[in-house]
């Protein structure tokens, strides 16, 4: 489960960088880029807490 969540988190970070790069190349409109950025943000903040502070509690 942690592995899946970690992969989802990493994909969200990838999206966070690919969306602006696509905008730079003129492949995305600004509004669409902003939408992808907030989607990536939500996915990151939902998935990352499950594995990022996992070892810290102990």
């Amino acid at each position: 489960m942690i592995k899946i969540l970690k992969t989802i988190s990493m994909l969200s970070l990838l999206l966070l960088i690919l969306a602006p790069l696509a905008y730079l190349q003129g492949r995305l409109q600004l509004d669409t880029t902003k939408t992808w950025l907030i989607v990536a943000t939500l996915v990151w903040f939902i998935s990352a807490p499950f594995w990022m502070n996992h070892g810290r509690q102990s």
């Binding site: 970070l13 966070l16 960088i17 969306a19 602006p20 790069l21 905008y23 730079l24 003129g26 600004l30 880029t33 950025l37 943000t41 990151w44 903040f45 990352a48």
Partner: peptide
């Protein structure tokens, strides 16, 4: 996440 959003600011502003 924050590091990449900072980078996104720069890329978007450049475009």
């Amino acid at each position: 996440w924050m590091v990449l959003v900072f980078l996104a600011f720069g890329i978007i502003a450049l475009r």
